[in-house]
């Protein structure tokens, strides 16, 4: 039977939390094995980064939606971490199968990869809670006199000082790695992707420009045809 928007949101939240109950808030044994197979074990860096980003996220979430909502920020972050670990493990399994390697040293020691993946997981959590929504601009729990800002995408990029182009890199692999994502959440990520391709990746300072310069200098770019007379 058709659901009211509130009932639909509550169902999505229950499904997300239910799915993540079996996922730990620490890396699984399998994921730790991937970490240990790296030339440089990234385990400690991963955990330190999560502690730092967790504090940044909760505080910034509280500033955005209301000071009494820092606790909600922590709750969202905790769910995001579980999803982050789960998707990371699935991505690595898939890469191991594709590349026949077990040492993902460069990838797992890349801070940008981890930050992008975590940001994507948090975007999924906030989209599920309706806080990041392109339809109604998201909603905030807060009230009172404090100034509230929207936490709709690309808010998460500003929180983590993450380039849109780097966030874009994880989206497709994220969706592939988690077949339980709802149609609405996938649609939301697709909208984020389009926004990045159309506008955000072309902002001043985007790493896309450096990549284009490198491609051009390495002769990778095709020669542009001169205009016909």
């Amino acid at each position: 039977p058709p659901q009211t928007p509130i009932r639909a949101a509550m169902t999505s939240i229950q499904l997300l939390r239910g799915d993540l109950t079996s996922s730990g808030d620490q890396p699984s044994a399998n994921l730790l094995t991937y970490f240990k197979h790296c030339t440089v074990d990234p385990t400690q860096d991963v955990q330190k980064r999560l502690e730092t980003l967790g504090q940044v996220f909760s505080q910034t979430f509280g500033q955005a939606v209301g000071p009494h909502c820092v606790v909600y920020g922590r709750q969202r972050f905790a769910l995001g971490v579980r999803l982050y670990y789960r998707v990371m493990e699935e991505m690595l399994k898939s890469e191991e199968k594709r590349l026949s390697v077990q040492n993902f040293n460069k990838l797992l020691n890349d801070s940008t990869f981890h930050t992008s993946l975590l940001a994507c997981a948090l975007e999924v959590v906030m989209a599920t809670y309706g806080e990041s929504s392109f339809k109604n601009g998201g909603y905030n729990h807060g009230g009172g006199d404090s100034a509230e800002t929207n936490v709709c995408f690309p808010w998460i990029l500003n929180v983590f000082n993450l380039a849109a182009f780097d966030f874009y890199k994880v989206i497709e692999s994220f969706i592939k790695a988690d077949p339980t994502l709802s149609k609405d959440v996938v649609k939301h990520l697709e909208t984020c992707e389009n926004l990045i391709m159309e506008r955000l990746a072309w902002r001043t300072g985007s790493p896309l420009f450096e990549l284009l310069t490198q491609e051009h200098e390495s002769g990778g770019a095709e020669q542009v045809e001169t205009p016909a007379n």
């Binding site: 991505m91 898939s94 890469e95 594709r98 590349l99 993902f104 460069k106 990838l107 890349d110 940008t112 990869f113 890199k169 994880v170 497709e172 692999s173 969706i175 592939k176 994502l181 149609k183 996938v186 649609k187 990520l189 697709e190």
Partner: peptide, 21 residues
């Protein structure tokens, strides 16, 4: 099920996107 359009080829993955190939 969703109708997300996958752009990566079979031989492409997250490792290449983060310059790890």
């Amino acid at each position: 099920s969703h109708d997300y359009h996958y752009g990566l080829e079979d031989h492409e993955g997250i490792s290449e996107l983060f310059d790890c190939d």
